[in-house]
Design a binder for these strands. Structure first.
Lengths: 312, 312
DNA sequence: ACATTGGTGTAACATATGTAACGTAATGCC
DNA sequence: GGCATTACGTTACATATGTTACACCAATGT
C-alpha cells in the first residue's frame, strides 16, 4: 500500500470514525508518529478539507483578511443590507454585539464615544447591563444645531443602557476660531475634561465622509467654512471632527485648529480604538483610517470590506 | 451576538486560522470550556464538514460499513476494474498490501494459505522480505490436474518472496472416498500436517463459487461428483474445499467427508482468518462466509462490497 | 563502493484537548 | 414567588496531540 492510501485511510479513521491517533496506529500497523504526519499532510495537501455550511463564514474570511492586511486587532463584518437606509442599523447591531462582549471581558474603566447614526443604532442594540464602575464619556464636542440627532443623547444613551456614569463633553464640536479654542481648553474645567477624554480605555467612533450625507458636513461646519475648501486641501473625511487626508494626516486648514476634541497624537494613545462605519461613500476615509493605523478594531459591512481589501 | 455566530466564528478560528482553543477563548472573550463545546457542536450539527478530495475515501466508507455490518476486524475494498479479467489482479494487489503490513506488524509464527487465481496474484504483488522465522503452509490439498495453475506453487511462491520456511500439504484436495480420507489422516505424517495446519496464526484463503468459473468446479471435483448435486443440497460455494450453504454450514454431501483440509470447527479457531474474493458470481458464497463469521478480515472489490451491504 | 540524504522508529516531553465535579446564575414552569 | 432545570464559569486532571532529539536504515547520487 503506498503512502497515499495510508494517508487517506488514516485521515478517514481519524475524522470520520473518530479514532485516536494511537488507535489508528495500532489498527494500521503504523507508529503514532507516522499517523500524526499523515494527518497533518492530508490537511496541508487539501486531501482532507474542512468546509463551513454557513454564510456567516464568508464574513469571517473577510474579517480575517482585514486583520491581516491592516494589522487590526479585531474586525467585524456584517452583511451589506439590500436597502442602504438599513446600513446604520446593521452596523449598529454588529458593533453592539462586539461591545457587549468586549465590555464584559475587559471591564474597562472608561469608554469614550463619538456620535452619528451608527453610534445611535449601537446604543439601541446594546444589551442592558449594570456597570456603575464604568465612565461613559463623549470624545468630542457636539453639534449645536440640527434636529435629526441630539449628539449629547448618544453618550447619555450608552450610560443609561449600561447603568454607568455619564460625563458630557459640554461644548460645541468647533470653537469659533483657533484663538477661541485655545482660550476654552485652558479653562480648568475643560482642561480636565480633555485630559480625561484622552485617558479612556476604549474609544468607539465612526468616521465621516465629505459628502452631504455626513451630519458633520450638513450641520457641524462653522459658518464660513466650505467642505469644498477642505476637499481642495486633500480631505477625504473626518475623525473626531478633524479632517484628514488619504494618508491619515490632518489637512492644512484652520478648521482643524478649532476642533474641541483630542488631537490625533493623543487619540492614538488610547489602547482600544474602535471605528464603525460603512458604505461605499466612506471608502476613502475608511481606507485612510485603517492604513494610518487610526483604528485597532474595525466594524464595517461586507461591501466596504471587499472594497478595502481590493485596494492596492 | 447569538451563540450560533459565536460557534461559527470559533470554528473558523480553529479550523482555518489554526488557533488553539485557549487562544480563541481569549480572542472571543469566552471560556475555553465554551469554545470546546462550540467546536464539538459545530461538527456534530454539520456546520463544519470534513470532506475528502480522494476517490479512495469511497472505498474506505465501504470498508467501514462492512466491518460494522459483519463484525469484521478488517475489510479492504479495492476498486472494481472495468475489465473483469483484471479482478484477480486488483484483489491480489489489495491483499498483498494488507499482508505486507500485517506480517510486518504481527510477526506471525505461521501462515496457512489456500490457492486460486487471487492467491497467485497476491504472491506476485507481495513485497520481498526476509522472514526465516515464519512457516508458510498450505491449508489444504491441491489440485491434481489442470494446467491453468499449479496449486502447490502458491505456497512455494509465498515462502520464496518472504524467504520463509515452506511446508507443503502434499496430498490431493479430495480423497477418493470418506474411508480413504479417514485412512490418510490417521497416518502419522498426515496427522502432524493436519495439526500444524490447524494451528497457524493467520490463514489466507479465497472462496469458490459453484459456476464453471471456479477452478475447483472445473478441475477439483472427483470423478462422479456433479456440481449440480451440490447445488441441489444447498451449496452456494466452497471454503477450504468444503461446500457450504447460505448459512455457512457444510452441506450434506459425501464430498464434504472426503476433503483433505481442516474442518470448519478447527478452522474457526485460527485467530486471523483472511478471505479475499470478489465478483458478482461470488456474492452468495461471500455473503455466507461473512454472515457465518468464517472470516475475520475480508478483501473484496467495490461492486461486491456494495452487493454485500445491500443485502438485508 | 562510498558518501549523503531522507525517512522513520523510539522515547520523551510540552502543550492542547476533552471531560468531570462543583457551585452559581439564569431561565422556565407552576 | 418558589422550585426545578439548564447553562456555564472555574478548576483539576486524564488523555491526545504535536514536536524534538537521536539513532538507524534504506534510498539515492557520484
Amino acid at each position: 500500500m503506498e503512502s497515499h492510501e495510508l494517508k487517506i485511510r488514516a485521515a478517514w479513521l481519524y475524522h470520520v470514525e473518530g479514532l485516536t491517533q494511537a488507535q489508528i496506529a495500532e489498527r494500521m500497523y503504523l507508529t503514532r508518529r507516522r499517523v500524526n504526519e499523515f494527518l497533518a499532510s492530508a490537511l496541508e495537501e487539501g486531501i482532507v478539507r474542512v468546509s463551513f455550511a454557513s454564510p456567516l463564514a464568508a464574513g469571517m474570511e473577510l474579517e480575517s483578511r482585514l486583520q491581516g492586511r491592516f494589522g487590526l486587532e479585531a474586525a467585524v463584518v456584517v452583511p451589506t443590507p439590500a436597502d442602504p437606509q438599513l446600513l446604520h442599523q446593521a452596523l449598529g447591531r454588529g458593533a453592539a454585539a462586539y461591545l457587549d462582549r468586549l465590555i464584559q471581558a475587559r471591564k474597562p474603566r472608561s469608554i469614550g464615544v463619538g456620535w452619528g447614526a451608527t453610534l445611535r443604532e449601537t446604543v439601541t442594540n446594546m444589551t442592558p447591563a449594570s456597570e456603575p464602575g464604568i465612565e461613559l464619556r463623549s470624545m468630542m464636542g457636539g453639534l449645536t444645531r440640527g434636529s435629526e440627532i441630539n449628539t449629547f443623547e448618544i453618550v447619555r444613551g450608552f450610560a443609561q443602557v449600561l447603568k454607568a456614569q455619564c460625563h458630557y463633553f459640554a461644548a460645541p464640536i468647533y470653537a469659533e476660531s483657533p484663538q477661541s479654542r485655545d482660550a476654552i481648553i485652558t479653562q480648568s474645567v475643560f482642561e480636565r475634561i480633555f485630559r480625561q477624554t484622552c485617558e479612556v480605555d476604549i474609544s468607539y467612533l465612526s468616521v465621516g465622509d465629505v459628502t452631504r450625507q455626513s451630519l458633520q458636513v450638513r450641520y457641524g461646519l462653522p459658518a464660513g467654512t466650505d467642505i469644498g475648501d477642505l476637499i481642495a486641501v486633500g480631505a477625504v473625511g473626518d475623525l473626531l471632527g478633524r479632517y484628514i487626508d488619504a494618508e491619515g494626516r490632518p489637512v492644512a486648514h484652520p478648521l482643524n485648529a478649532q476642533v474641541l476634541a483630542p488631537d490625533l497624537t493623543d487619540y492614538r494613545r488610547i489602547p482600544c480604538r474602535i471605528v464603525a462605519s460603512g458604505g461605499i461613500h466612506k471608502h476613502a476615509i475608511l481606507t485612510a483610517t485603517v492604513r494610518a493605523g487610526l483604528a485597532t478594531a474595525l466594524i464595517t459591512d461586507e461591501e466596504s470590506a471587499r472594497a478595502l481589501l481590493a485596494g492596492g
